[in-house]
Design a protein around this nucleic acid. Sequence first.
DNA 1: CTGAAAGCGCTTACAG
DNA 2: CTGAAAGCGCTTACAG
Lengths: 347, 347
Amino acid sequence: MTAQKNDKKNDRSSRTTGKPTLNDVARSAGVSPITASRALRGVSTVAEGLAEKVRQAAADLGYVANPAARALASKQSHNIVVLVPSLANQLFIETLEAIHAVMHPRGLEVLIGNYHYSRDEEENLLRNYLAYQPRGLLLTGFDRTESARRMIEASGVPAVYMMDLDPGAGLHCVGFSQIRAGEAAARHLLKSGRKRLAYIGAQLDQRTLLRGEGYRRALQQAGCYDPALEVLTPRPSSVGLGGELFRQLLASHPQVEGIFFGNDDLAHGALLEAMRHGIRIPEQVAVLGFNDLPSSEFMVPRLSSIRTPRKAIGTHAAERLLDLINDKPVNAPVMDLGFELMVRESS
Amino acid sequence: MTAQKNDKKNDRSSRTTGKPTLNDVARSAGVSPITASRALRGVSTVAEGLAEKVRQAAADLGYVANPAARALASKQSHNIVVLVPSLANQLFIETLEAIHAVMHPRGLEVLIGNYHYSRDEEENLLRNYLAYQPRGLLLTGFDRTESARRMIEASGVPAVYMMDLDPGAGLHCVGFSQIRAGEAAARHLLKSGRKRLAYIGAQLDQRTLLRGEGYRRALQQAGCYDPALEVLTPRPSSVGLGGELFRQLLASHPQVEGIFFGNDDLAHGALLEAMRHGIRIPEQVAVLGFNDLPSSEFMVPRLSSIRTPRKAIGTHAAERLLDLINDKPVNAPVMDLGFELMVRESS
DNA sequence: CTGAAAGCGCTTACAG
DNA sequence: CTGAAAGCGCTTACAG
């Protein structure tokens, strides 16, 4: 027995899809296709009686508009393109879900592009997705190629930038200050009187670097910045890597008193490694994470972290984009959602 | 300063998009649009000289084909639709990435639909996405509404089912036997002589239930099945939930000797909770997880788990789908990729 | 409030 | 190997 019926697919005798079209609906409702189109879209004024008949006919036939035809005729799709650097990071999933929750009820399809922290890949995705004539663009951060920047500008498609803030540039952005978050992390660790503080960051995307910069600034201000205690690697962030880097740092600098990790998973790895080797947290070394993933509060000891508003970022970025699409007036382009220091047991 | 230039978007004076079209490319290359189309798609035989001229012209103009027009004319999109029950679970992300890696180089766009473990949501997604005339469908498991099943069948779009196997149904599926995986888990725990064994599952999607069933069968066969030790909850799986359920089970049944968790994150929560309360793993209770997430081997103690081939599932499901799309002969519809028991410190 | 005509940007089917 | 004509299924712009 063959596993798949391909009757329709192989039927090349006609150029039609075989699905009911607007014409079918119109005929069945006894109106012209234009009226059917208007009734279904709820635009223009169609007599309520007719509109109802059309909707009924559409429902009876199981009519679903062909998005390709619609996009071609109106030169507008119902697509929103979201570009994120990673799906492996739980953080972006939560943002994506929030975006979907505001777009979907409005009939907008969310196309997700993952550029794997690669500027070139982002540029390619942009080129491809722009061909789909999206209604709007939701982008992550500001670190992209010149040519990507130009494409966005030239497309005229409304765009909102998520995660970081870029005051002054005039771009619409929803997020929080990565630099200030890094500073807050440092200040928290300094408050306990610790001086030998380290930063461990991976992936080295712009936001990780910015967090590091804020951290550095605060330490410099406190007069205790030591470049040797800044551990940066381009390797992707993971629990395993966190443990490895933690071990190495303690081996080379046993006197470290506190570590700020650019990501929670890195910090998880450190906590686990500490446990394995009997290193007492926070007595010997304080540990502070970033993002406050759902599992962080269940770590042993419970991980202190900086909670970031990634769900709210998704929601507000999506709503802002909707405003731009609908030409609604917007007060200020920059929307700062802040962050929250969660002090638990590890620091 | 307004944040967004909307010149093009607001230009309603013409019905065109302003982007270069096939016609522009053809004119610039001095050929007819059909020839340009053929040259760009690499179909039919176009004299190499002309083809090269066309490609050059397209590159010069920065031409990108309009997918809507293409889909409308050819009644075939370049879309592959993938429907997964969750993005929160790292597992599906890995599968998605693998799918993307085989589809993208072939010019196919992967549309991701997340139905949040809801049959109704999956049915809606299917209805919407089918309107996009996808080239193929990649679906998760077999648990769906009758009407979703009919839509798939009626659409004639080739489909491959991922994760579980369904021998005999004739559907193309790539995965492993969830039941046998559950049995293997039970047998492993039994081998150490432990008899009072529990299963803790959350979310209660079909695969979690199937794992439980396999587990139950094996215990019944060994004559030590106790329904009181089967803990099932529809709540979504998480580290926090794992700890909570673990604590409750030990409180009500202190004599439990081993626990199989339907998901690694649940098991992580248990390990952490055990550590917090000084419960020795595996001496007092053995713990076995499922999926073998990347962080599992770094837990304390290192988590034993059943490793599932989610990346390979994505790769092979995608390749199988490509075969179906291209009408290549397929030997057997069922592709069993198996699973692997990873015995570490927790069991 | 409703509709006939034209067009969106491609590809198909048919010629040559 | 190349092209003129027609058409995919919608919506726009223009009438009435």
